[in-house]
């Protein structure tokens, strides 16, 4: 009895979800499959900035998108980091990073990625690698003409994530 009820409920769920054609909130077409997780802005690991000036200084969502693409481009060819990023789904990484930075800068974005601890679990990231990524981010922000003080507003939000990202 219970199984029949369960199966019916399951079938119903599948039916409704295909009917509305909503993708799972944790995944997007064109990305590699990923185990489900609870989607919440809290996964971004920082409270968003209250005022809009810093987001403006980054050039809004478009500026953030260009900066993150540049950051990823730099990091995958950086001899200090390339090994770590080899198996990574870069389509997903670019999307979630853009969401995260846009959200933290107070932009009109929701973060749908995983939290920092589970995203970096078992990667074995070192402090030196963390700093290398920050340097690449600084390089990308410089290239985009983001003023130094605005850059530091973002870095101040990211710096405390070291505890969740770095394992060694």
């Amino acid at each position: 009895m219970r199984t029949i009820f369960g199966l019916t409920l399951g079938a119903l769920l599948v039916l409704t979800s295909t009917a509305v054609a909503q993708p799972a909130p944790w995944a997007r077409p064109g990305e590699e499959p990923i185990d489900p997780y609870a989607v919440t802005d809290a996964n971004a690991g920082a409270e968003p900035l209250a005022e809009g000036a810093v987001f403006e200084a980054f050039g809004g969502a478009e500026g953030v998108s260009r900066i993150i693409d540049d950051l990823v481009d730099r990091s995958v060819i950086d001899p200090r980091l390339e090994e770590i990023f080899k198996p990574t789904d870069l389509v997903r990484l670019r999307r979630t990073l853009k969401e995260q930075v846009c959200f933290i800068l107070g932009g009109p974005c929701a973060y749908t990625g995983r939290d920092m601890a589970s995203s970096h679990k078992d990667l074995g990231v070192t402090t030196a690698e963390f700093n290398a990524l920050v340097e690449n981010l600084q390089g990308a922000m410089d290239a985009a003409g983001v003023p130094f003080r605005a850059q530091n507003r973002l870095l101040a939000k990211l710096a405390p994530m070291k505890g969740d990202v770095v394992e060694r």
Binding site: R74, R80, A128, E129, N131, A132, E135, N136
Partner: peptide
């Protein structure tokens, strides 16, 4: 181009 590892 890419500075050495370590601190900022």
């Amino acid at each position: 181009e890419t500075e050495r590892s370590g601190k900022l």
